[in-house]
């Protein structure tokens, strides 16, 4: 969906992006994380054709964003970190304008209602946008960005300023958009919440990509799994170590952690083998990734930037 090659961007005295190359698959949710001033917003604005980079190529759904920014906008929805809504217009008028401005001519009212419903704004259509709460404004802004059905949605700090309930609801919304076929790129500082929705994490620091990895187990060739035992099982470690695709085995009390290479069918077969061998398995689940730690470790690690 997104192909960025050797992208560089500068502000006077600041190299905001340095030779950034990355490829993002369709229907994924990529969390773009990094410290303040890392280049996240610049990368997003370049991706949306709002900034002209110094060098490099950006393609969204096969369209060269730098050469044809207007054409690429048909496929992109964007929500800036500091966004605004037309405070004196009603929610319905805001959405009608966004739809018409994005080229939707027929079935305008139906599209407005459909989008408002999917974002939980259907009962607010006649309310002035200026009177909405922060969370509802966020929803309205996202509704404006997606009303034309873009393939890619770029959200810059969408969770900033939202209360926990609104954040949870935003995560559910992002998952819903992904399920409907959209690709999402979301920048955030709240790493703990990325696990709720992100399938990939892209770490950027000093204008360079430091790491780009899948987070969702189904996208990883090797997954970290944890086997929980109901009672002591001295043979469990030996048995597990003998299985195909199992590596880096370690035990902590009744919990056995290991790296597993194989699909879900192989995982089911592994579980069956253990149970049939009499291992008292109480649970087998993906090991929880501490994104915060992963992020901090990545930033602390010196070395060459990530190549994608």
């Amino acid at each position: 969906m997104i192909r960025i090659q050797h992208l560089s961007h500068e502000y006077p005295g600041v190299r905001a992006l340095q030779d950034v190359s990355v490829r993002i698959e369709p229907q994924s949710i990529t969390a773009l994380v990094g410290p303040n001033g890392a280049g996240k917003t610049t990368l997003m604005r370049c991706l949306c054709g709002l900034e002209r980079p110094l060098a490099g190529e950006i393609e969204v759904d096969g369209i060269n964003v730098i050469e044809e920014p207007r054409r690429s906008h048909e496929r992109i929805g964007y929500l800036a970190d500091f966004f605004g809504v037309y405070e004196n217009l009603s929610v319905a008028q805001c959405l009608e304008y966004a739809a018409a401005a994005n080229g939707i001519r027929s079935g305008l009212a139906a599209r407005v209602l459909e989008t408002a419903t999917s974002l939980g704004l259907a009962d607010r259509l006649q309310q002035a946008a200026g009177t909405l709460s922060r969370g509802l404004r966020q929803r309205l802004a996202i509704a404006q960005a997606i009303i034309h059905g873009p393939q890619l949605l770029v959200l810059d700090e969408p969770a900033a300023g939202l209360d926990p309930e609104a954040r949870h609801s935003l995560a559910a919304l992002l998952r819903h958009l992904q399920a409907s076929g959209m690709t999402l790129l979301v920048s955030s500082h709240i790493l703990a919440e990325l696990e709720e929705y992100a399938t990939h994490m892209l770490i950027i620091d000093g204008g360079r990509i430091r790491d780009f990895r899948p987070l969702a187990p189904q996208l990883q060739s090797t997954r970290s799994l944890q086997l929980e035992l109901a009672a002591d099982a001295p043979d469990a470690m030996r048995l597990l170590a003998a299985q195909t695709g199992v590596a880096q085995l370690r035990q902590q009390g009744h919990a056995l952690s290991f790296e597993f290479t194989g699909d879900f069918a192989a995982q089911a077969a592994l579980l069956k083998t253990l149970v049939l061998a009499g291992v008292p398995v109480s649970a087998l689940h993906p090991e929880r990734v501490d994104l915060q730690q992963l992020y901090l470790d990545t930033l602390k690690t010196p070395g060459s930037p990530h190549e994608s």
Partner: peptide
């Protein structure tokens, strides 16, 4: 001032 210009710039209007 109300930061809605980027939304317009991202629209399909020529």
């Amino acid at each position: 001032r109300s930061r809605t210009w980027d939304q317009q710039r991202m629209s399909a209007l020529g």
